[in-house]
Computed example of a mutant assay.
Amino acid sequence: MITFTVYGEPVAQGRPKASTSTGFVKMYDPKKSKDYKDYVKLAASEHAPDALLEGPLGMVLT
C-alpha cells in the first residue's frame, strides 16, 4: 500500500490558456494550476515504488 498526504488547500484545474506568440497555437495551464500539479507530483514522487504497478489498482482519496 502506498500512502501520502498533500498538505494545503486544493486548487481547482484552471481553464487552459492559448498563446500564438511563435505563430503556432500553444496551450498551457494557468500558473496557479501548474504550480499545484507540480506540488502534488513532488509529494507523490517521494513515495513512488521502484517498479511500475501491475494488475488491478484501487485508490481512496479523502
Rank of each mutant, 00 (worst) to 15 (best):
M1F: 09
I2E: 05
I2W: 09
T3K: 14
F4E: 08
T5R: 13
T5Q: 11
T5D: 09
V6N: 09
V6M: 03
Y7H: 15
Y7A: 12
Y7S: 11
Y7C: 08
Y7F: 12
E9L: 11
E9A: 07
E9W: 08
P10Y: 01
P10Q: 05
P10M: 04
V11I: 03
V11M: 02
V11F: 02
V11G: 01
A12K: 15
A12F: 06
Q13C: 11
G14H: 05
G14F: 03
G14N: 05
R15E: 08
R15F: 01
P16C: 00
P16K: 02
P16Y: 03
K17I: 11
A18W: 13
S19K: 08
S19D: 11
S19A: 15
S19N: 08
T20C: 10
T20L: 07
T20S: 09
S21C: 09
S21R: 12
T22N: 13
T22M: 07
T22K: 15
G23M: 07
F24P: 09
F24T: 15
F24A: 15
V25G: 08
V25F: 00
V25H: 07
V25M: 12
K26S: 15
K26G: 10
K26Q: 15
M27T: 14
Y28W: 06
D29R: 15
P30A: 13
P30T: 06
K31P: 11
K31W: 10
K31Q: 11
K31L: 09
K32C: 00
K32D: 05
K32R: 12
K32I: 04
S33Y: 01
S33W: 01
S33A: 08
S33P: 05
K34Q: 09
K34I: 03
K34C: 09
K34F: 03
K34P: 01
K34T: 05
D35F: 01
D35V: 11
Y36N: 00
K37G: 05
V40M: 03
V40T: 02
V40D: 02
K41G: 04
K41M: 08
K41I: 03
L42D: 10
A43D: 06
A43K: 06
A44H: 03
A44W: 01
A44M: 03
A44K: 03
S45V: 01
S45A: 09
E46T: 07
H47R: 08
A48K: 02
P49F: 00
P49L: 00
P49C: 00
P49S: 00
D50F: 04
D50P: 05
D50H: 03
A51Y: 07
L52V: 05
L53Y: 04
L53D: 01
L53R: 05
L53H: 04
L53K: 08
E54I: 12
P56D: 15
L57E: 06
L57R: 13
L57N: 10
L57M: 13
G58M: 11
M59D: 05
V60N: 13
V60Q: 14
V60I: 13
V60W: 12
V60D: 13
L61V: 15
L61Q: 09
T62D: 10
T62K: 04
